[in-house]
Design a protein around this nucleic acid. Structure first.
Lengths: 240, 240
DNA sequence: CTTCTACGGTATGAAAAAATACCAATGAAG
DNA sequence: CTTCATTGGTATTTTTTCATACCGTAGAAG
């Protein structure tokens, strides 16, 4: 076995210190709209347990997000950390900058990773026999994103794609898809959301769901690949 | 967005303490045969840097593996931590126990995850145009595993599958595939390696490589899926 | 057989993180 | 308007992890 494979296994045990990782995680949950504007984060005690860190460390992270203007923290019963954030108006302005902010290699890496795990998830879901509740979730997410107002589009698009991963029943796979999304969030938010794009995406979303419900793994995977390739090609264009 | 999606994003920031994670990582690198019997781990100083931990913490992990009999640590120049481990003789004996050791849900999760990322990796690799060096690596790994002695089979099989992920050029994807393998290593090692199985697997390996080189993503993905489904079905059989 | 040097072995102080316990505020319920 | 449960706020101690410096050893090279 070659040296290269050592790199895959003996890679860093932890990405950074607990504080920084926590800030990043919370920030992305906010930016992805998993906790929408006005909603409350779980209580500090619950969150600390879920994130596997101490409440002290979590509080430091929350405080920095509060100071950065992402959270409004209120105390007392029925208090908590409320999200104060609306996704920026999509536009070209920051895209080139956002692309340059992360390395070119990192971007290619993230795009490849996203492609692999999302195609894999759709493919697997298409092999499963979904019950009516699961089909309902999938169709609901599809309707949500395809009927979304521009301001809500990214959030519901993410919800749709994550739902596919979660319906596979594999937390590891869902986490991998969430992680893949996180790595390109800022870039996606900088992409303008145009009418024709949305219409095109809507057709692709429909094709993905149709293939999944029809039990066509290859079709589902290919539909996802085509869908993701659209934004991927656009982002790669900024690497020059 | 539903509560379920919170779980994917607000999952634990760290799996455990640095010491435990390091022990686990090293142990799996040994069990996977990435560092074969008699070979030396990188020096403590190098390893600490690669793993992103302090040398003190790394040493604690190494010492516990030494006491467990996995490593032979020698000092002085040309010294180091040498692997003292040969994969157990494959057999049914420990399989049921190994399956029960991890939860049924965890096993299904790991199998699904492995299926998704390995199919995704093969699919992506098939879309790329490989240069002669890359083709050589792939064919070399194929020849290695298909010509392996039973004692080396698992190690070279892992090397083959990881090579596919690494050839995509995405460290994230390679890490995900390595991670997926790690989660089923103990179970795979407990599966008997029979002649007919090896012959069957060899044909599947060949089919995977052929599809990749032919630029057939669907075929590559399907070939990987069939290949993995063999062991997956066997392992699922022990959940009853 | 001496030297050189890349390795593991050890010690110590600082910093980060966690565990624990307790305080304070809020606002709905009665 | 009092009660009370739930939430954030604070303080203290312990454990873990890190950074740094230095020591001891072995084995190849000369």
């Amino acid at each position: 076995m070659k040296e290269t494979q050592l790199g895959s296994l003996l890679r860093p045990v932890r990405a950074g210190n607990a504080f920084e990782e926590t800030v990043e995680r919370l920030l992305q949950a906010i930016k992805l709209g998993v906790v929408p504007h006005g909603e409350r984060l779980p209580s500090e005690r619950d969150l600390a347990v879920h994130l596997g860190i101490s409440r002290v460390t979590l509080r430091e992270a929350i405080r920095s997000l509060q100071e950065a203007g992402y959270l409004d923290v209120r105390r007392g019963r029925y208090g908590g950390a409320f999200v104060v954030y609306s996704p920026p108006e999509p536009g070209h302005g920051d895209l080139a900058e956002a692309v340059n902010q992360m390395g070119a290699g990192d971007l290619a890496d993230a795009l490849t990773f996203r492609m692999a795990v999302e195609c894999g998830a759709a493919q697997i879901l298409a092999t499963l026999t979904l019950d009516s509740a699961q089909r309902a979730v999938l169709l609901r997410r599809l309707a949500d994103v395809n009927g979304a107002a521009p301001a809500d589009y990214r959030r519901l698009d993410t919800a749709f794609h994550l739902a596919i991963a979660e319906l596979t029943g594999s937390p590891l796979l869902a986490a991998a898809c969430a992680d893949a999304r996180l790595r390109v969030t800022d870039l996606l938010n900088a992409i303008p959301v145009l009418g024709p794009n949305i219409a095109h995406a809507a057709a692709q979303h429909q094709a993905i769901v149709s293939a999944i419900l029809a039990g066509d793994p290859d079709g589902a995977s290919r539909a996802v690949a085509e869908h993701l390739e659209g934004t991927a090609a656009l982002l790669r264009g900024f690497l020059a």
